[in-house]
Design a protein around this nucleic acid. Structure first.
Lengths: 142, 142
DNA sequence: ATAATTCCCGATTGATACAGTCAAGAATTC
DNA sequence: GAATTCTTGACTGTATCAATCGGGAATTAT
């Protein structure tokens, strides 16, 4: 089981934008280069993130993207959910068959799902940037 | 992100077998019916579980499957790993690119991965059966 | 022996989702 | 009005998933 590339790329883009000084924007092109993300694929992702109000965009010369709200208000779950449509859903709880031991399995899968989703929901993009070991901002001469 | 059907089916089969009295076997046919698992698909899965020493099999009349070791010694991770080849690996740690904030993202993804994997590793099939709310054994008249 | 049973195994298939590309349109700035 | 940048939809190749199919090998019963 893996995280989708889309979700990884989205996290990269949002995190990079979170390291920008407020009110600065960054263009898709540069985001793609910094984050090692195929540009046309990234454009799709940025668009989705914008529709989810996670990002704001500005067109034309000097345009680009920036966070749509404070980094502490954007959870990792928000980002993944925006691009992938759902978080971790191990099983369809409403439609799990009955069998010997099945209640135990279902309960466990729900628990495990909850453990990981809580972690995704409780971690903000600000947390990610804060826990960066330090060379994140070097590129901006800060 | 979902658990694979294969992993779900494998958990069902192993859990059902864990509710059997020791030394009893159950045939693939009946396992499939109880667990609502397509029989030919189940056969593949049982074979893999056997190769992983999670199950033992016996051929011919009166044959079938049973656990290859005590239920408390089989972790959920063992079962998933046997059929899916890996557990949760959010990212390839060794090959994650550098970008502003990237260390924070990588660290978070590794943490999240570790949280879920620990849960899978620390839960045994015996735990699953023990937490079953009770009608697991009804089918056997116990 | 031989037939019945049950597990064992490889090949194949159809559908779906993933990851990414392509071509062009709309808004903004200079 | 020309250049820039985001916006959008359509399209494509690849891989993985979720099975299915057909038969082969071991074991037991008669």
């Amino acid at each position: 089981m893996q995280i989708s590339r889309k979700a990884d790329y989205a996290l990269r883009a949002v995190t990079i934008l979170a390291t920008l000084p407020p009110d600065k924007t960054m263009q898709a092109q540069e985001l793609g280069e910094l984050g090692k993300i195929p540009i046309k694929f990234l454009e799709q992702i940025l668009l989705v993130l914008k529709r989810a109000s996670i990002l704001l965009s500005k067109r034309g010369v000097g345009g680009g993207y920036k966070l749509g709200k404070e980094a502490r208000l954007i959870s990792v779950a928000d980002v993944i959910e925006a691009v992938d449509g759902d978080l971790v859903r191990f099983i369809d709880v409403s439609d799990y068959p009955a069998y010997p031991g099945g209640n135990g399995v279902r309960q466990f899968l729900m628990d495990a799902e909850s453990v990981i989703n809580s972690k995704l929901e409780d971690t903000s993009v600000e947390d990610l940037v804060r826990n960066d070991s330090g060379d994140a901002l070097l590129g901006y001469g800060i």
